[in-house]
């Protein structure tokens, strides 16, 4: 049995190292979460996606639950282990998690995302009835479409959303275990005989408003850029983990780092939507062309 001791986000490096080692199905993995004390939505996906990956490879997996009661209750409330056990291919049921102000962890595609988006908007709008939550819809649809168009993920895309009432923010995280933004960008650049970029440079390239890998005829890119423009207006935060790169944009400032989850393969994007800065629901603009100054 292989024991993976996970007590912080960077420990997920051990899991991704194992994915890259091409583990055979006669192995068994024990995830030791004894000292993991606080899971953010992003950690939920970092845990779920490899578990599903290994489940699909028929690798037996066990868990040692966190010691801290609060953490155990949280994981139980959001149904993490139950979800990993069932491994639904489709979001058969989508039920809000009232005790944690959250929308459930689900595997979704563009075909199945409408219901999730509708229910997420309806649920979170109960907490902020006067605010226009369109940015939430947009975030989910752009991120899920991106996975379908670019990622080639063996497990589709996973999503989890949670409202933090005291901070008045909604965290939305979407992840996949696909080829990652840098691979997609560099494959495109290579096809055009352009220089290869580092993983961080490639992520920055992908969020530029005039670039796209145009991986499908209908796909002109701009999805990530669209979200970045909204982050500026809304003073929200986005974290993009993709392969070896990590990009953080907060209140108009962008910072990049080497991904501290080593051997990570895929893309994980967490958006923190600042509810206070969303427009009011009643605002309607009249003349688009005049307002937009084209």
């Amino acid at each position: 049995m292989i024991t993976l001791t996970l007590s912080s986000r960077s420990d997920f490096s051990k899991v991704f190292q194992l994915i890259n080692s091409d583990l055979s199905s006669d192995n068994e993995i024990m995830y030791d979460l004894t000292n993991f004390s606080f899971f953010e939505p992003i950690d939920i996906l970092l845990f779920t996606m490899p578990v599903i990956y290994f489940k699909n490879k028929k690798v037996l997996q066990r868990y040692r639950h966190p010691l801290k009661q609060q953490t155990r209750s949280y994981l139980s409330d959001i149904g993490l282990f139950e979800f990993c056990k069932t491994n639904f291919q489709e979001p058969i049921t989508i039920e809000e998690i009232h005790s944690r102000s959250a929308m459930p962890l689900r595997r979704i595609t563009p075909v199945t995302m409408n219901d999730y988006i509708f229910r997420a908007q309806r649920y979170f709008s109960n907490h902020c009835p006067l605010k226009d939550l369109s940015f939430l819809n947009l975030t989910i649809s752009e991120l899920i479409n991106n996975v379908k168009d670019h990622a080639e993920s063996p497990i589709d895309a996973y999503i989890f959303c949670q409202l933090y009432p005291r901070l008045n923010i909604i965290k939305v995280v979407v992840g996949d275990l696909g080829i990652g933004i840098p691979t997609a960008v560099n494959a495109y650049r290579e096809s055009r005989k352009e220089s290869i970029l580092s993983d961080i440079e490639a992520i920055i390239w992908a969020i530029d408003q005039n670039t796209s890998t145009k991986s499908h005829p209908h796909n002109r890119g701009k999805g990530l850029n669209n979200l970045f423009e909204f982050i500026k207006y809304n003073r929200s935060i986005i974290n993009i983990y993709s392969n070896k790169g990590l990009l953080l944009a907060s209140k108009g400032r962008t910072t990049s780092f080497l991904n501290n989850i080593r051997d990570f393969q895929g893309t994980l994007i967490q958006m923190e939507i600042n509810i206070d800065n969303l427009p009011d629901i009643s605002n309607i603009e009249d003349d688009f062309w005049e307002q937009a100054q084209f």
Binding site: K222, N225, N226, F230, P279, N283, Q291
Partner: peptide, 18 residues
């Protein structure tokens, strides 16, 4: 374009600008 919310309008502005 008519009957747009601020967000819908912003999405289109971004799209045309980019």
């Amino acid at each position: 374009f008519v009957d747009m919310t601020v967000t819908q309008s912003q999405v289109l502005k971004n799209y045309f600008h980019s």
